[in-house]
Design a binder for these strands. Structure first.
Length: 291
RNA sequence: GCUGGAAUCGUGUAGCGGCAAUCACGGAAGACUGUAAAUCUUCUGCCUUUCGGCUUCGUAGGUUCGAGUCCUACUUCCAGCA
């Protein structure tokens, strides 16, 4: 029974806030392994455009949660939870500290609040529902005594409400035991600069070529290729925008993404917010206590 | 210098004389448990919690019950001629 009580270290924050390198530093120090809670880096071949950690950056730290699916595959929060729960146990069984790191709030919450997912997707049912209009879906809900979701004009949410009728979801009020949850704060200017810089870097590293390959291999209709920079590059390829506009447009999309991420994270009262330096000190002290 | 056109919310635009005034972009806030870098909602002249109030469409006048819309002058910009 070794190290049953190794904590789960959770590091969250908006895109480009520096989560990854912080996690690598700490994992190096304390014998950790990293699970990326990122709905984009689960996809194979989407490397540059998702800012996926490169092997060179990993500094020898095992990284999990990468390349689990191909663009176009159905990979979702449910899959992620199952994967990550097992990984966490596995890492602990090796006597190492699991680090859950990422910007996909839903994925992170699925773990720390132990989401009990509702019914899965029935492809036939889904296909039928998708053909309906928003008003039709709303009417269907009313007629069948299904409570409308708060986002009652959101087709996806409407469909989901219908699909999960009589199958309530559940979660814990508090994070699962033995977790250290840290959020990285950044100033607006700082984050914007980092985002811009990262986009420039991606362009230099050849995202455009990557995107073209992805489009050829998996088709542009795949949901994964709607991710910020790829969808912008698609516009460029189609001649809708000029090359120079890729940078500005992607920066805008990334900035919005970071804001949505913050909106999600803000309501989690259990996150302790710090800037990178403070976060390091804090986690360091927490882990040092354990010896 | 002459002639013609244009000046509207951060930006680009809509606006047969009668609602602070269209749409897009950009911005802000928010929702979201099986696609979440997705998807969706609200707000975006000023004041106000709501009702509502106030001030707006280059500037200054004028016509009109009423002007972003018509007239005059001025300013600036664009195009053609020179």
């Amino acid at each position: 029974m070794i190290n049953k009580n190794k904590p789960l270290v959770v590091i969250v924050g908006p895109t480009a806030s520096g989560k990854t390198s912080l996690a690598i530093d700490l994992a190096k120090e304390f014998g950790g392994e990293i699970i990326c809670a990122d709905s984009r880096s689960v996809y194979k071949d989407m490397n540059i455009g998702t800012a996926k950690v490169a092997n060179a950056e990993m500094n020898g730290i095992p990284h999990w949660g990468l390349d689990l699916a191909s663009p176009g595959d159905y990979f979702n929060a449910f899959d992620f939870k199952n994967y990550a729960i097992n990984k966490i146990a596995e890492i602990r069984s090796r006597g190492n500290i699991p680090f859950l790191v990422g910007g996909t709030g839903l994925y992170v919450d699925a773990i720390i609040f132990d989401y009990q997912f509702s019914k899965g997707v029935d492809v036939d049912e889904r296909t039928t529902l998708e053909k309906m209009t928003i008003t039709e879906l709303q009417d269907y809900c009313r007629k069948n005594n299904i409570e409308l979701p708060e986002n009652n004009k959101n087709k996806r949410h409407l469909i989901r409400s219908i699909e999960t009728k009589d199958h309530p979801a559940a979660k814990k009020d508090k994070p699962i035991n033995n977790t250290i949850i840290v959020g990285l704060t950044t100033s607006k200017d700082e984050l914007l600069t980092r985002i811009e810089f990262r986009v420039e870097q991606m362009l230099k590293d050849g995202v455009v070529e990557e995107a073209i390959l992805l489009g050829k291999k998996y088709g542009w209709s795949s949901e994964a290729l709607k991710s910020d920079i790829y969808r912008v590059i698609k516009l460029y390829i189609d001649g809708v925008i000029k090359f120079d506009e890729i940078k500005t447009k992607t920066t805008i999309l990334d900035w919005r993404l970071s804001k949505r991420q913050m909106t999600w994270l803000r309501r989690n009262k259990f996150i302790k917010w710090f800037n990178i330096k403070q976060a390091k000190t804090y986690i360091y002290s927490q882990l040092a206590k354990l010896g």
